[in-house]
């Protein structure tokens, strides 16, 4: 594993020094990339094993809204609110996952169940407009100054380092899952559940394990994003739109490699911003159309995503170089 350690250490060094030279706008981009990179990494923890969830927006929404509602209504600080939001998301993952996995709802059917889930959460948030503000969204009560306790910062610099730490934590979780026996078990499960069970793998348990990790990370990312934006909107934090964006980013970036989902975040944020700057408000909603088209292209031509594609490409080049010398 020495091969990936050096570039990674270098990357971290650059990321630690990066904010010194960035204006607020670029810092804002960087923070979003890190938070979404964390969420996409969370999705790929289960997505890479063929557990395709089209409903991660549900976890995002549960995490963000729970945290904000507890803060606004009961004055519970995010340090307590986020764990509770994550716990709710985990509970939701178990309630949906357990019957699906026990009854062998797999592949497309599982994807459809999750798709419905994200929409149920969206509609619930909108329906409970008295407490959530419905489709107009809601704003967490501001303390008016930087406060670690309330997890609100007036300076982008603070947020950058918070986001960086959380993102790094996400990578650590990904590596943990990747190095454990659980990875081999899930590879086996994704290929042949019957054969996996025959060698003693508790298929339902292994699937629930990655689903719960994935849901928890996503809820955490959602809560953090809500805190950062200081504005929660059901369309951006739940429902099909954001759920598909997560899927697109993870697949396009490359869900089989550590940094793939982060590359995906870079791509989606750049795309959204590029469209906003280039076309202003005339093309609102165009991003989703472009995601859709790109997703199709990626699945056909680069199923392992950008990182997977370049990984294979550098390997091929190294092989040809070795062959010619």
């Amino acid at each position: 594993m020495m091969t990936i350690r050096w570039p990674l250490a270098l990357l971290f060094a650059v990321l630690l020094l990066l904010p010194l030279g960035l204006q607020d706008y670029l810092l804002h981009m960087a923070i979003q990339i890190l938070i979404w990179g964390f969420v996409y990494t969370g999705w790929s923890v289960m997505g890479r094993f063929g557990q395709v969830s089209l409903g991660h927006g549900a976890f995002l929404g549960v995490g963000a809204y729970t945290t904000a509602l507890l803060w606004n209504n009961f004055g519970l600080v995010p340090w307590i609110g986020i764990p509770i939001g994550v716990a709710f998301a985990v509970l939701l993952a178990l309630v949906i996952g357990y019957p699906c996995f026990r009854l062998k709802v797999v592949g497309h059917y599982f994807a459809l169940v999750t798709l419905a889930l994200s929409q149920v959460v969206l509609l619930s948030i909108v329906a409970a407009r008295d407490i959530t503000g419905g489709s107009l969204g809601m704003t967490p009560n501001s303390v008016g100054q930087s406060s670690w306790l309330a997890l609100q910062f007036t300076s982008k610099m603070h947020w950058y380092f918070v986001a960086l730490a959380v993102w790094a934590f996400g990578l650590w979780v990904w590596v943990k899952v990747d190095r454990g026996m659980g990875r081999a078990a899930m590879e086996a499960v994704s290929e042949d559940e019957t054969a996996a069970a025959a060698v003693g793998i508790n298929v339902t348990r292994e699937k629930l394990r990655v689903t719960v990790i994935s849901a928890a990370m996503t809820a955490f990312g959602g809560a953090l994003f809500g805190q950062y934006q200081m504005y929660l909107n059901p369309e951006t934090l739940s429902g099909i739109g954001v759920s598909l964006q997560i899927v697109f980013a993870a697949i396009a970036g490359g869900m089989y490699s550590l940094l793939g989902p982060t590359v995906g975040a870079l791509l989606t944020i750049a795309l959204t911003e590029g469209l906003r700057i280039g076309f202003g408000t005339t093309l609102i909603g165009a991003a989703n159309t472009i995601y859709g088209i790109l997703l199709i292209l990626f699945i056909i031509f680069m199923p392992r995503g950008i990182t997977g594609f370049f990984g294979a490409w550098t390997k091929r080049r190294a092989a040809t170089a070795a062959a010619t010398t």
Partner: peptide
């Protein structure tokens, strides 16, 4: 290895 690990 997978079988040995989970089988036990």
């Amino acid at each position: 290895t997978l079988a040995a690990y989970y089988g036990r």
